[in-house]
Amino acid sequence: MAKDKDIIDGCLSGSRRDQELLYRRYSPRLYAVCLQYSGNTEEARDVLQEGFIKIFENLSHFSHEGSFEGWMRRIIVNTALERYRNRYYLNRVDDIEGVSEPEAEPDTDDFAGLEAYDLLNMIMELPPKYRMVFNLYAIEGYSHKEIGEMMGISEGTSKSNLSRAREILQKKVMILTGVTRRMVNV
């Protein structure tokens, strides 16, 4: 299998074949990211298409330091974020300070039977603002401050959105797996 660097060099020299090779190699994983952020397949395909155009346009800036997939993922996430800002910027929620985390949680072992597709569907069903914050915080690892800057919201709003997203997801997970016993007992 061709190395990423060879494919990148081929892309930079204008080889359409290498561009397609790169797309075929990474589009399934990046499309999953698009779905995670987009909520529906139509929007996800637009994000993927727009994201790949940006990837190709900026490929010469990739410094070969760090993961190439991580670099592409960041572009896809930023593209999704940009679309979100354009579409949902006006639908802000008020800052909610002092939101507490859920007091008890099931163990991860209780969710062992969950399929990735189930998890993806749960995230896609979240309201956009909750979905974005949950993805950025729990999956990508950004801080609330960074998320606030990226989404144009306050840290407090980010925290409250995350809290609400977790709450919704926990309920969905527990419904799906039937894990309610712990929550009741604690």
Binding site: Y23, S27, R45, L48, F52, F111, L119, A138, V173
Partner: peptide, 25 residues
């Protein structure tokens, strides 16, 4: 735990994109 469940569960997820996406790039 819910964060970890989702992070690990989605880590290597792959979904084939619609066939016509490549044609529009």
């Amino acid at each position: 735990n819910i964060d970890i469940v989702f992070r690990n569960g989605l880590k290597n997820l792959e979904v084939l994109p619609p066939a016509d996406v490549w044609d529009n790039i």
